[in-house]
Amino acid sequence: MSLTIESISHPSHHLINLSGEVDTKTATSLMDALAELELAGLLELRIDMADVAFLSSAGLRALLFAKQKMPYESRLVVIGANTAIVEVITKTGLTEAVTLVADISLLS
């Protein structure tokens, strides 16, 4: 099980494109990528999960880690998560931490 991470800085936000699976083993790479960002000053982080097939609690911890480091008024947007991943995020109450968007075209 593998994870490809692409991290791109934009003027208004930072975008992380993920492809593969976010589990106990691969989540460490995601945490590393998040730790490299200036999260304390980041007002919008977008994580594109359209090509992510699986996310476990390790992935949720990474999302929560990022949001807790970001400013209170910030947005963590998860894009294109599949139904199963949306259910995991919802069941664990993390819809308070992330904004779920179906497709990147819905964002400016």
């Binding site: 911890r61 929560l64 880690f65 807790q68 209170y72 109450g93 931490a97």
Partner: peptide
């Protein structure tokens, strides 16, 4: 609140 949620 999210800021107070435990990671684990």
């Amino acid at each position: 609140p999210i800021q107070e949620r435990p990671i684990g």
